[in-house]
């Protein structure tokens, strides 16, 4: 997870909804926790534009 400070691009959204940023940060962390992890160096991603990738 990124621990960088709030990017300027989020300031307007933050001003609109002060809870949004923290809720979003927590939600992102929950989702990342759902990845198994432990990927070996040679475990490649499924390529984004591999059409019919489940072949």
């Amino acid at each position: 997870m990124s621990d960088t400070p709030l990017p300027p691009a989020l300031e307007a959204a933050h001003a609109l909804d002060p809870e949004l940023i923290e809720k979003s940060r927590a939600h992102a962390a929950r989702l990342v926790a759902g990845l198994e992890g432990g990927y070996k160096p040679d475990e490649e991603p499924a390529h984004i534009y591999q059409a019919g990738g489940s072949q």
């Binding site: 997870m1 990124s2 940023i21 809720k23 940060r25 990342v32 990845l35 490649e44 991603p45």
Partner: peptide, 17 residues
């Protein structure tokens, strides 16, 4: 908005998953 808080490596990890 949660997309602002993923690291690039999180995204690549998801593609590896």
């Amino acid at each position: 908005m949660p997309g602002a808080f993923f690291a690039a490596a999180d995204y690549v990890d998801a593609l590896r998953q």
